[in-house]
Design a protein around this nucleic acid. Structure first.
Lengths: 348, 348
DNA sequence: AATCAAAATGTTATCGATATCATTTCGCGT
DNA sequence: ACGCGAAATGATATCGATAACATTTTGATT
């Protein structure tokens, strides 16, 4: 796909002005406030920015005036002067994708953390998708955050070339210099293994598509930690759904000689499907088989029986992504970072 | 909570300039392109906007030049001149809320539709939450879209006072002049009733918190359509979870003389919980009791058994929200609109 | 009271685009 | 070739804020 030449939407035209929505109410400017307060506009500017160059009294007076008058900063003017957009573009996949690697609400929680942190720091969060990245507002951003694309692949490569500060959510890639924030999937796998070891389980099944970097990590941590304590049989459903988990465990139960006493699934839905399959064969959870899920989605705790699952702190992840971005934009040194996970022990 | 006076983050200060991230590469302006092309900058401006005031050849020449040079429009400058921000703020609740009225992925799908439509129209989508609404970038938006707050309540009232174009996702309120886009919950209820009538079911249970306007509509449509064909017993769980559905139906089954042959739940999770409760009492679904859910969440189709559910076209809803917003901003007449729903008949 | 540095405030230029109005170029008929 | 209206292009002002530099005010010290 060749990149197309820049053509802007005909947002306006000096020949025939057809915009019907020009706001008629007079909008206050700093100039106006300045006249009212009997000072110059630069003093107003400084006062509203809480600059020490202005007396405390003057500052307070102008702040009050601004509030009374309902003054609102013209962000475009400031950004133009400051030569920055004070915005960060966040690339999210917002189309429902079958077999999405993580449970559905996860991007929203990340977004919540990102938005809170960036907005508080004076930046605006511009939402976009992979398909819309080459539009003007996105290209004008001061930085970019990628969610759900993985830390490699073309999307990242393309963006890296722009030279914009870039932070990615996902699993870190060994030789790469891209800043990545993610859950520590390896430790998540280890924590599941430890739980099984404590319970004396020794014939385990790992359920998940190890083609995904994050799942790969979970599996690796799990196997390493189980080493010497038991065997791990890997099953690779293509999707992350209830159905896939159900099918995998059902077929496994049909084969004779394939006894197991524990299942570690790469998503809660897989785990739920597995439990359902076990129930149909009259296997008891956790008496006969113990099951651990991943993500600790809202449904996990209220599942029957309540599902033991590896919890990720996604909102914190969002906050961390935002902090890294702020550091990058301020020229501070930044390194990739993985967040801890917690095994939420419930009844399975 | 009193509204606080406007104080802007100390983004800069003319006394001590501590920003470390000023981009050093020279950024091309229209002026630069103009010099290269041997024309004036206004011609460049017109050419890039595809104005008929410029010869087709000149337009093409400048477009190519701009592409070669990697020129990028300075959005702040344009917005300042045009006296508009060309951005729309979208208010979303991004914190996990127990008992959220709709299933989790729904805001993301809506966001996808909104983003696609607005970005294509040259607007940027600024993400925000209720708590962050009074920040500069949000207040500078040309319009606001509210998701998940309902069409009444203080949030809407506050926003309406600002005079900004406002569009809300939810259920319409009779006397209100707010533009609302939503699913036609009433018809969703009707479609569930029709299904039960076809199947000859006559003793129904409605499961859902009718305090929510949207659920109220579903229930009303359901009851009206059932009128003369059977009875409806309303149960009001406080949450929309699996657990709540499980508990409601369990307790109902314990009472004697409370036979029923159909359940219409206000969410898929409630429906799944209901099915689970029925299974525990050895009631067969759908032979003894037929169950219909709402939302048709990704998990519904892969549930065991596959869940019959009322599907909402959320992405389309997002697109529609965006279109209404564009119309409002262009001064075109706009009316509220409800989207159709479809009953996805599966095995329950 | 005079002096002078520090504090407070003001003046002017600037960011990069577009609207308005002015000017030049083009095409065509006579 | 000339003239004239239409088409194409250009010069200047402007949007609302902040930086850099200039000026005035303050107050402490002699």
């Amino acid at each position: 796909m060749r990149s197309h030449p820049p053509v802007f939407n005909p947002l306006s035209d000096d020949a025939l002005n057809k915009t019907g929505a020009r706001r008629t109410e007079t909008v206050l400017t700093m100039e106006d406030l300045a006249k009212m307060a009997g000072v110059s506009k630069i003093t107003v500017s400084r006062a509203l920015r809480d600059s020490p160059l202005v007396t405390v009294e003057t500052r307070e007076k102008i702040r009050q005036l601004a509030e009374e008058q309902g003054y609102r900063l013209n962000v475009s003017a400031r950004n133009l002067r400051m030569r920055r957009s004070y915005s960060v573009a966040v690339v999210v996949e917002m189309t429902p994708v079958k077999g999405r690697p993580m449970s559905d609400p996860y991007p929203l929680e990340l977004l919540g953390g990102i938005t809170q942190e960036l907005t508080t720091a004076g930046y605006s969060v511009v939402l976009t998708s992979k398909q819309l990245m080459d539009t003007a507002p996105v290209q004008g951003a001061d930085g970019m955050i990628l969610l759900g694309q993985g830390s490699h692949g073309e999307a990242v490569r393309t963006l890296q070339k722009t030279g914009l500060p870039l932070v990615v959510w996902g699993a870190p890639e060994p030789g790469s210099d891209i800043i990545v924030v993610g859950s520590d999937n390896r430790k998540g796998g280890v924590s599941a293994a430890q739980r099984f070891i404590e319970q004396g389980r020794s014939k385990l099944v790992f359920l998940g598509d190890v083609d995904h970097a994050e799942v790969q990590e979970r599996c690796a941590g799990f196997i390493d930690a189980m080493n010497g304590h038991g065997t791990v049989h890997i099953m690779r459903p293509k999707a992350f759904t209830f159905e896939a988990g159900f099918d995998c465990i059902s077929s496994l139960l049909k084969k004779k000689g394939s006894a197991f006493d524990g299942v570690f699934a790469a998503s809660d839905l897989l785990a739920m499907g597995a439990i359902r399959a076990l129930a149909e064969k009259n296997m008891r959870v956790p008496e006969n088989v113990s099951v651990i899920g991943y993500d600790d989605t809202p449904g996990a705790a209220s599942f029957v029986p309540p599902l033991t699952s590896v919890h990720q702190y996604l909102r914190d992840g969002g906050v961390l992504l935002a902090r890294k971005m702020l550091d990058l934009m301020n020229g501070n040194p930044v390194a990739s970072e993985m967040l801890p996970t917690t095994l939420m022990v419930r009844q399975t």
